[in-house]
Simulated scan of single mutants.
Amino acid sequence: MTGDTAAETGWAKINLALHVRRRRADGYHDIETIFAFADFGDGLAVRAADDVTLTIAGRFGAGLPVDGGNLVLRAAAALAEACGIKAGAALALDKRLPVASGIGGGSADAAAALRLLNRFWNIGADETALRAIAATLGADVPACVGSRTQRGDGAGERLRALADDDLRGKSVLLVNPGLPLATGAVFAAWDGIDRGPLAEGPPLAAAQAGRNDLEAAAVSLCPAIGTVLGALDGFGASLSRMSGSGATCFALFDLPSDAQAARAAIAAAYPDWWVAAGRLH
């Protein structure tokens, strides 16, 4: 091991655009998306132990499983099996991001576990190897391993790095109405219409020209998303939209002061909502 303790962050994932092209026979959907990541997220720490265990705390930790159904423990088990590891690890998750909210909380935590235990167990696997393990855990987990601006195709697991000069460091505001929304239910409510491909080119421009094809379905299931999107209007954002399958929505700003002003105004008007501001990294 590299030490007695270590820590990682499960960075909040944002789908700047999400085009759903078709339903596949295997139950997944072919999508085209642009992934970006905020500079905040869930915290994951580890210390030496005889067995692999998980404890969960934090604002959104209540009720989450701490057994083999949790993606963090599934990631730990997959990494240990793939690399022949017999060591233990006491994992502690600080759940700061809303659950079932379209910003990759579980996927980001699983990816953080892969990165963290790769170091802690002194495995030395590269990102390609970690992504291969991540692909067995969920469609968004491979993108969360690198947590950088990428285009995702297929079910989201076919990744291509994007030059992000027009995005890096841009201020971001995330807003969630405090209502969980199951990804499967949103995809099931999608109308099945292929509205065309996601543009190539610089990611911000491509996203601005794009859309989130799940937004209408999500709003039909959770009308509060429409309220969130309306609340984000009028603050001068360069882009605002729902992320993933919802219910979290985002807005991008050129100036941190504009993001903070929007954050303060929305938090005051809707004190029960989760509101967080930071930067894209």
Score class of each variant (00 low, 15 high):
244 G>H: 01
214 L>D: 08
12 A>L: 02
113 A>C: 08
263 R>N: 04
140 D>E: 04
136 T>G: 11
129 A>N: 15
13 K>V: 04
155 A>M: 12
257 S>A: 15
137 L>E: 15
117 L>P: 04
77 A>P: 02
63 G>A: 02
194 D>M: 09
66 V>N: 10
168 R>Y: 00
88 G>Q: 05
57 A>D: 14
263 R>H: 13
135 A>Q: 02
55 T>L: 07
85 I>D: 01
54 L>Y: 05
137 L>W: 15
14 I>C: 09
32 E>Q: 15
189 A>K: 14
187 F>V: 06
62 A>P: 06
17 A>P: 03
274 W>L: 07
9 T>C: 13
259 A>S: 10
177 P>T: 05
60 F>Y: 11
48 A>P: 06
69 G>H: 02
258 D>R: 14
153 D>V: 04
205 A>G: 07
141 V>D: 11
44 L>R: 02
189 A>E: 14
184 G>Y: 01
85 I>P: 00
276 A>T: 07
6 A>Y: 03
155 A>Y: 13
255 L>W: 05
44 L>S: 03
245 S>L: 12
114 L>V: 05
59 R>I: 01
225 I>V: 08
208 Q>D: 14
164 D>S: 14
277 A>S: 15
166 D>T: 06
52 V>G: 07
246 G>H: 04
211 R>D: 08
76 A>R: 02
163 A>P: 03
